[in-house]
Amino acid sequence: MSDFIAKPIIERSNYLVGLFELDADVAAERYAILDRVTMKLIWQGSIKPGVTVTHLVRKSYAIDGVIVLMIDDNETFNAVVADGVRLPLVNSNDIEIGY
């Protein structure tokens, strides 16, 4: 079940937005995206095996960077954290997200 703090970008516009894509480790079962500046949760959810997690986020997150956290539910492996991840800026009309 996905849960988000930041409102997802659904409307199409000609403004640039950040594209978050996560091709997760096969052992990872959940992920979280944090705003690097405020440390607030942007989005969290489950990872389906073989599926790339994709979200459109505000331009400021793309420019300032985000923190990505991946964990496995059975605690076999340590959490994986990627700090300062910069996201590409894209036109939302050119991307198909599925939500």
Rank of each mutant, 00 (worst) to 15 (best):
W43L: 08
E11W: 00
V80W: 05
I67W: 02
A28K: 02
P49N: 11
S46K: 13
G84I: 01
V17F: 03
E29T: 12
L56W: 08
D23K: 13
I97D: 00
I9N: 09
P88I: 05
I10L: 12
A79E: 08
E21G: 07
G45R: 03
E21D: 02
L41E: 12
H55I: 06
R30C: 10
T54G: 04
I42K: 05
D94L: 05
A28V: 09
G98T: 02
N14Q: 09
L69S: 13
V53I: 15
D23E: 15
V66G: 00
R12D: 05
Y99C: 05
V57Q: 09
I10P: 02
R36E: 13
V68C: 14
E29F: 09
R30M: 10
V66W: 03
V68Y: 08
Y15S: 11
V90N: 00
A79G: 04
D72H: 06
I71E: 13
V68I: 15
V17Y: 08
S13A: 07
F4R: 10
L89M: 00
Y99P: 10
L16S: 01
N74H: 14
N78I: 10
A32K: 05
P8W: 11
T54I: 14
A28R: 07
S92I: 01
S92N: 03
V57W: 05
A82L: 08
T76E: 13
F4V: 04
D94T: 11
S60P: 00
Y31S: 04
D23C: 11
K40F: 07
N78Y: 10
S2G: 01
K48N: 08
D64V: 08
Y31Q: 09
V37R: 13
I10Y: 08
D73Q: 08
A32E: 06
D94C: 01
T38Y: 02
V85H: 00
I5S: 14
T76D: 13
L22M: 00
P88L: 01
T52V: 15
R12F: 09
H55C: 08
G18C: 05
F77R: 14
I97N: 02
I97A: 01
A28T: 03
T38H: 03
K7E: 12
V53K: 09
Y61L: 15
R86P: 00
T76P: 01
I95N: 01
D64N: 15
A27K: 10
V80P: 00
P8H: 04
T76Y: 11
T52I: 15
H55D: 15
E75D: 14
G45F: 05
